[in-house]
Simulated assay, not measured.
Amino acid sequence: MKFFVMLAVLLLRNFYGQKLTQPIDKAFGGWQAYIAKRLKQDLGSSAVFLLSCMPWVLLLWLLLWWLDGVYWSLPVLGLHLLVVFYALGRRCDLVWVSRYMTAWRQADFEAAGYYAAEILDEPISDISDRELHARVVSRLVVFAFDRLFLVLFWYLLLGPVGALLARLSEQAITNARHQANQLTVQEGELLTCCDEQVIRFQQVMHWPAARLMGLTLAVTGKPWLGLRQFVVDIFRWKLSTEVFLNRQLMAGYGWLCRTEDASTVDQRPVMMTEAADMEMANLRERVWRSLAVWVAVTALGVIFWF
Rank of each mutant, 00 (worst) to 15 (best):
F153V: 10
F153K: 08
W154G: 00
W154S: 04
L156P: 01
L157S: 11
L157R: 04
L158M: 08
G159A: 04
P160M: 00
P160W: 00
V161I: 09
V161D: 00
A163Q: 01
A163I: 01
L164A: 00
L165E: 01
L165Q: 00
L165C: 04
A166C: 07
A166T: 03
R167N: 04
L168H: 00
L168D: 00
S169T: 14
S169N: 08
E170R: 07
Q171D: 04
Q171C: 04
A172S: 06
A172W: 00
I173C: 04
N175M: 06
R177S: 12
R177L: 11
R177A: 13
H178D: 11
Q179M: 10
Q179R: 08
A180R: 04
Q182N: 09
L183N: 00
L183Y: 03
V185I: 09
Q186K: 10
L191A: 03
L191W: 00
L191T: 01
L191R: 05
T192C: 07
T192P: 06
C193E: 11
C194F: 03
C194L: 05
D195H: 10
D195C: 09
D195Y: 08
D195E: 12
D195S: 14
E196I: 10
V198D: 01
V198E: 00
R200A: 15
F201G: 02
Q203L: 14
V204A: 15
M205N: 05
H206K: 02
P208Y: 03
A209C: 06
A209E: 01
A209V: 00
A209M: 02
L212V: 10
L215C: 10
L215T: 04
L215S: 04
T216Q: 05
T216K: 04
L217A: 09
L217N: 05
L217R: 05
A218W: 03
V219W: 12
T220K: 10
T220W: 13
T220E: 13
T220F: 14
G221P: 12
K222H: 15
W224G: 09
W224H: 13
L225Q: 05
G226P: 03
R228S: 07
R228I: 13
Q229V: 08
F230C: 07
F230L: 12
F230G: 02
V232I: 15
V232S: 12
D233V: 08
F235P: 01
R236G: 07
R236I: 11
K238L: 14
K238T: 15
K238E: 14
L239T: 06
L239Y: 05
S240A: 13
S240V: 13
T241L: 06
V243S: 07
F244H: 09
F244D: 01
F244C: 10
L245K: 06
L245R: 07
R247L: 15
Q248P: 12
Q248S: 11
A251C: 08
A251K: 02
G252H: 02
Y253P: 03
Y253H: 11
Y253M: 09
G254I: 07
G254K: 03
L256M: 05
C257I: 08
E260M: 14
D261N: 15
D261W: 13
D261P: 09
A262E: 15
A262S: 15
A262K: 08
A262I: 07
T264Y: 15
T264W: 15
T264H: 14
